[in-house]
Amino acid sequence: MTNTAATILTALVALLHLYFMVLEMYFWDKPLGRKAFDLKPDFATASKALAANQGLYNGFLVAGLVWGLLLGAAGHDIKVFFLGCVIVAGVFGAATVSRKIFFVQALPAIIALALLLVQNA
């Protein structure tokens, strides 16, 4: 049961980051992106390149998590590493941008990592 829950939650974290990537790379200055990140149009336009870069990094997190998931049990360490990266990014974002980031980004990864570590204990 723990293995299935860890896998599902890790996949959910990957899907969340895929969504973040798409928002940041393609919709940052569009109504969907501006609403999601509460951006004024002029700021969204001015920061579009920075957001696309940030989105690319989210894409790397997705790639790592999917890689670990595809490897199954053999991808344990890869999943641990990339979930750890998500947690660090979420905690940093919560400390520097908005507390909401902790709950949307870091907390699901913390739970997934805990389940992943419990299954191998």
Results as ranks from 00 to 15, higher is better:
2 T>M: 06
3 N>Q: 14
4 T>Y: 13
8 I>S: 04
8 I>Q: 05
9 L>E: 01
10 T>N: 08
10 T>W: 08
10 T>F: 07
11 A>D: 04
13 V>Q: 02
16 L>I: 15
16 L>N: 13
17 H>E: 07
18 L>I: 05
20 F>R: 13
20 F>S: 10
20 F>I: 14
20 F>M: 13
24 E>W: 08
25 M>V: 10
27 F>T: 12
27 F>G: 11
28 W>H: 12
29 D>N: 13
33 G>C: 14
33 G>D: 14
41 P>C: 05
42 D>M: 06
42 D>Y: 10
43 F>L: 15
44 A>D: 03
44 A>S: 06
44 A>H: 03
47 S>R: 14
47 S>W: 15
48 K>R: 15
49 A>G: 11
51 A>E: 11
52 A>P: 09
53 N>M: 02
53 N>W: 03
55 G>D: 01
56 L>S: 00
60 F>R: 09
60 F>Q: 07
62 V>Q: 01
63 A>T: 10
64 G>Q: 03
66 V>P: 03
67 W>G: 00
68 G>Y: 10
69 L>P: 03
70 L>E: 14
71 L>H: 12
72 G>D: 05
78 I>S: 09
79 K>E: 06
81 F>H: 12
81 F>Q: 11
83 L>Q: 07
83 L>S: 05
87 I>C: 00
89 A>W: 09
91 V>D: 03
91 V>I: 08
93 G>K: 00
96 T>A: 08
100 K>W: 02
100 K>I: 02
101 I>C: 01
104 V>A: 04
107 L>A: 11
108 P>C: 07
110 I>Q: 00
111 I>R: 03
111 I>Q: 01
112 A>Q: 02
114 A>P: 00
115 L>C: 01
115 L>I: 01
116 L>Y: 02
117 L>W: 11
118 V>A: 03
120 N>V: 14
120 N>L: 14
121 A>N: 14
